[in-house]
Simulated scan of single mutants.
Amino acid sequence: MEEKLFYLPMIPNIPYIFRRWNDLITQWAQHQLGVMIICLSLFAGFSILYFPNVIQKRMDNSWTSNDKYMIDFVNRKIEHPLVAMVDKDSREHYAKRELRITPYLIGKVFHLNAIRLFYLQVLLLPFFLFLFFNLIRKLTGGDAPMAFWTTACILFTYVGHSFVYDTLFYDSYAFVFLLIACYYYDRIWSVVALILAFFVDERSLFPALNLPLLFLFQSGISQGKWSEVIRDFLWKNKATQYLLLSYILYAFIRFYLYIYFHLETPMGKQAGVQLGFAFLHGYKLPYALFSALKWAIILPVIALGYFVKQGIWTTTWFYFSTYLASFIAATAVDDVTRSLTFCFPIIFVLFQIIHRLKEHENARVLISLLFLANILTPTYTLLMHLERISPFNWIY
């Protein structure tokens, strides 16, 4: 009797493909030109999926009355960055934007209007990815595949979406300056970048607290008495000193602008700034909070677990308090997705932990899975109402 042979379809050798891909990334990333090509390729693929919002609006002329008001406001601020434009009695909510002068100064220096400022924001995304890639590689001791998967992972959170979606808020400028500060966390250049980020949006103040932790891991974690840890944190940590200097300079400049130009950040319900304000959204809030970092939120949880396991309690409380402060600030306003996105620097500490523990291979697998999960998971933004940001939405 003739035997019947059953042939199973060819199953791809995923571990082999994964290793070969990582080897290819390592080979390309030996030179900065290769890193640029990798990041530009990520940007091109992302742009095909998510067409810049402002270009779509210009093509179909779908500007709302609120959009037109914001465009007019930004253009007037570019012309006169230090002049208060808003009647605080009638539209106090917009007065928050009066003091966020960094984008207006950039527009004035480079002769850009509100729309062109957005175009520049879109073009900053490849630079953001390039710097992000190099920072992760720096923190992990030169692990290019880890840098690739992490960069791709963060691109498909609201961090990446903000560059092509946030038409007139310009938060992505703050993300770029925060990233520059993280890259130069042990140098004086971080002060300039931090101040520029603070004057894009004051919500940058809280995630900046992660910079001292980056220096702390570089120089070694003190595990003595809490008083000794704090002393070393203040006097031996250059990142702490630069951060405190940036806070002092920011406070001084803000005070000067308030006294001489009457620029301020209003508080209260009328201004849309009140503790717990975002909880009024009810069931929509978890979608918005999750979209800020999406599955990458697992990374700081792992870092926090490491601190607890090692009994590094002072660092544990500082790290947790940094995220808690960012969370409280984010939920005090209506646009909670954008607000919590500012805390993306919180993930960087984990990569120094991975490098210390020599867990590179396992981490690559984890982060590549998080990247796939982020692609397959929708992103939402919450500004008065919940809106889903879908791929190819610009086609129809």
Score class of each variant (00 low, 15 high):
L211N: 06
Y173T: 01
I188A: 12
R187A: 12
F175H: 04
P207M: 15
P212N: 09
D201Y: 15
F215P: 00
F199H: 07
S172N: 05
I180R: 06
V192P: 04
S204T: 15
Y170Q: 03
F175W: 07
Y185W: 12
F177D: 06
S204E: 05
I188Y: 12
E202G: 08
E202K: 06
A197H: 03
L214T: 05
A208P: 08
Y185T: 04
F199E: 08
S204M: 13
F175N: 01
V191K: 00
C182K: 15
L178I: 08
Y184S: 10
R203W: 14
F215A: 09
L194H: 00
P212I: 03
L209D: 04
L209C: 15
V191Q: 07
I195M: 12
V192S: 11
Y184R: 15
L209V: 10
Y184E: 08
F199L: 12
F206A: 14
S190C: 13
S204Q: 08
V200G: 04
A197M: 03
F215R: 15
P207L: 14
D186L: 06
V200A: 07
F215Y: 15
F177V: 12
Y173I: 03
L209H: 08
L179D: 09
F199V: 14
L214E: 04
D201R: 13
Y185N: 06
R203D: 13
Y185K: 09
